[in-house]
Amino acid sequence: MLTLENTRIDLGDFQLAANFGIPKDARIAVLGPSGAGKSTLLAAIAGFQPMAQGQVLWQGDAMPPTPAARPISMVFQDNNLFPHLTVTQNVGLGLRPDLKLSPDEKTRVEQALARVGLTGMGDRKPAQLSGGQIARVALARVLLRDRPLLLLDEPFGALGPALKAEMLALVAELLDETGATLLMVSHDPQDAREICDQVVLVAEGTAQAPVATGEIFANPPVVLREYLGG
């Protein structure tokens, strides 16, 4: 259970408040207009964004201050891979940040790569990969990190529709296997329909408590309707 307890983020003119809980195993889409603070919300949960008040709890306990110590894997919009490290090294960071991998750990890296469909690509550098492959490497690392909470900050925004659907499917599979809780920022309501059972709407300075996906699209609030258009 992830709890945002009376949290408020203060960024000068911009404020964002949230006060709700997310049950374990939930798959949440974070939707809302541009600039509403979707990414900021994720950054606060991950520990990158200091909060003016309130706290973030996991299973009832306050989260540790350092991002790496939190039970979280995060995939960003871009810069998910270090360009000077090989695919294997980038994934291996998920096991050991100092990259001193034991033979056993190396095997696990290979298995993770195989799981995301990148067998034999371990020695490549990110510059030699396509956009979809880069996303797969990032997901392979998520797999190895094996944290109970997965935060996706529009990681597939730059991919074409077919590729994106493929990646979402892969995410869903990985969630099935690991049982992790998902929070995914997206621009596209279709993403939410595809793999998320609930939606957190971020608009007008508030992140609202999650609502079931079917329900919110059947009866969208005004801000969501304006955002969706038509």
């Binding site: 950054a43 991950a46 520990g47 990158f48 350092t66 991002p67 790496a68 110590a69 979280i72 894997s73 995060m74 960003f76 810069n79 998910n80 270090f82 490290l85 960071l93 998920g94 940040p97 100092d98 990259l99 990190r145």
Partner: peptide, 16 residues
């Protein structure tokens, strides 16, 4: 953020 998220600190951050 990626490095912080992965816990790359100190000498490891310098080296990697």
């Amino acid at each position: 953020p990626l490095a912080d998220g992965l816990g790359l600190v100190g000498v490891t951050r310098l080296r990697l």
